[in-house]
Nucleic acid binder design. Structure first.
Lengths: 150, 150
DNA sequence: ATCATGCGCCGAATGTGAATCGGTCTGAAG
DNA sequence: CTTCAGACCGATTCACATTCGGCGCATGAT
């Protein structure tokens, strides 16, 4: 996990379709060597998968909201309950007054309301507090170059 | 933008490395037809890009937090100021008491504190309220199949 | 109803790049 | 000094992306 690996990761985050020859050139290696490094990054689980990035608005998910979920009981193993709602893109257990924070995308505010209702129906949930996003400045992947301890 | 396109998107979100032949088989089309559809999805901007998904912990970003940012002035064009901090993965203008919500990943809580300090230094920011994530249930891409109006 | 047009699909070709492998070099350990 | 492991290079092989001509079907005009 050296600097070259980090640059390769950054390149692949920007565009995973570029040929290994270009990838190798970006770090001063041959295509074969770049290929081998990327293969090992996958093997080690540093690269989880290769996927396309879909525009949410284009597939009918124009409304974005974050929801703080309050609960009366331990929510530590309620992951399945939240995962059952496809509109929920992220679910985290958090420190603080609420117990779970979820990220939700829906087509309309009516559908958002419906999701809130279904969250409320989850066992142990005592309340929700939704925060609607008016404008997204940006969304980007984690930077492999930031914490560069080489 | 029919049902076939949505299934193709879902497939490519799971694995963008699979051959077009497999992709076509998943929707009952030939490899060439699947290729053509995907090409148009890219052209229309439905597919923004193809990228690898990197494990945050593997690149030294084990701490995740959401930060509510309060401000005294209009934050509508402060996108650049937030984008300048590489640890900030998302920044949204929100409705409610705070004005901006940001998602932050750092290696340690000390670095998180440093990011909060730098957010505080942004012009117009009057306060921050950080919520630390204890455990992430899941993070997944938007589902193209959810709002299926064909 | 017939004909023209355009769009989407198929199936085959062609070219490109992924994946593999033998060989070399360097650095570390014995 | 010798041995070994790891990483890189360069070439070879093979699979897949990409392109193309032709066909079928739907739509709209005459």
């Amino acid at each position: 996990m050296d600097h070259i690996d980090r640059v390769l990761l950054a390149q692949l985050q920007q565009d995973a379709t570029q040929p290994y020859a270009a990838l190798g050139q970006a770090v001063g290696l041959s295509a074969g060597a770049a290929h081998e490094r990327v293969r090992k990054l996958r093997e080690r689980g540093v690269i989880r998968r290769t996927a396309v990035d879909v525009d949410p608005a284009a597939v009918g998910s124009a409304v974005l909201a974050y929801v703080m979920v309050d609960s009366t009981s331990w929510m530590g193993d309620a992951a399945q309950d939240f995962a059952a709602l496809p509109e929920i893109l992220e679910a985290h257990v958090i420190a603080g007054s609420a117990s779970v924070l979820v990220k939700v995308r829906t087509a309309t505010t009516e559908q958002l309301q419906d999701v809130l209702r279904r969250i409320y129906a989850i066992d142990g949930v005592s309340g929700t507090q939704a925060t609607v996003v008016l404008e997204t400045f940006f969304e980007r992947p984690v930077s492999p170059l930031t914490a560069d301890q080489t």
